[in-house]
């Protein structure tokens, strides 16, 4: 006897409707997740930017500054203190063209030497260098004796007013010779690696003024910060 079944919906038709709704909800959730993933991708791409152009400009400018043929160095990695003070942004841009349209600052031991603009968001690169300040030391020497300079120098200037000298020897090597007697002032380059002894020929008379430029060096850190 079939009692009329209670009018409750067939579970199979329940399945049909609920499935579709659940599917739609699931697809919406998936779309939202794809959106979130795209946002994360955007963030990752932005965070991976290591500013290669700025970094290269900083490295190249630092290298140009401490190179041997730079206008602010005496020799490689040895900076000239006075030339540094007179370095202007325009001269630096001529020396390092990558800085042409960029904001930059050059610091020596933390103190800013050249700057233009505000490079706070830029990349910085450091080099280790020596800053040398040379002062002149002058002494008057009798020409009939030899003189040993206590501090090493790379060049020495001799003035022969008031002396009659034909030959000058530096550490035994002849560096100046003029049979009629040396006149005026002469500059001689010598080696920085040796202590210098200057002697004259045996017949020399009078007094010679000897000027040397011993160097004082101190270690510094050169920092270049560039933001293009």
């Amino acid at each position: 006897m079939t009692r009329s079944a209670p009018r409750r919906s067939d579970p199979s038709s329940d399945r049909g409707q609920a499935n579709l709704a659940a599917l739609v909800v699931a697809l919406i959730v998936l779309t939202a997740t794809v959106g979130v993933t795209l946002g994360l991708a955007e963030g990752a791409l932005a965070g991976a930017d290591r500013q290669p152009a700025d970094r290269r400009a900083a490295v190249a400018s630092a290298e140009r500054l401490i190179a041997a043929d730079s206008p602010v160095t005496r020799r490689e990695n040895v900076l000239n203190a006075s030339a540094l003070d007179s370095l202007s942004p325009e001269r630096l841009v001529t020396l390092a063209p990558p800085l042409r349209d960029a904001a930059f600052v050059v610091r020596i031991d933390g103190r800013s030497v050249v700057e233009r603009g505000d490079p706070t968001d830029g990349v910085s690169f450091r080099r280790i260098a020596l800053v040398s300040s040379a002062e002149e030391r002058t002494r008057t020497v009798a020409a009939d004796g030899a003189v040993t300079l206590p501090r090493r120098t790379d060049s020495v200037r001799l003035e022969f007013n008031g002396a009659d000298v034909e030959t000058v020897r530096a550490n035994g090597r002849i560096v100046l010779h003029r049979p009629g007697g040396l006149r005026g002032a002469e500059t001689v380059s010598v080696s920085r690696s040796e202590t210098l002894t200057i002697s004259f020929d045996a017949n020399a008379t009078g007094t010679v003024t000897v000027t040397s430029t011993p160097e004082r060096t101190r270690k510094t850190t050169l920092e270049v910060r560039v933001d293009a």
């Binding site: 079944a5 067939d10 049909g16 409707q17 579709l20």
Partner: peptide, 23 residues
């Protein structure tokens, strides 16, 4: 008999599956 009752109310499983696949 029950199916016949409900056919007017909702879709059959086959049609719903097809709809799902299509979606």
């Amino acid at each position: 008999a029950r199916d016949g009752d409900v056919r007017d109310r909702a879709v059959t499983p086959i049609v719903s599956k097809t709809l799902e696949i299509g979606l």
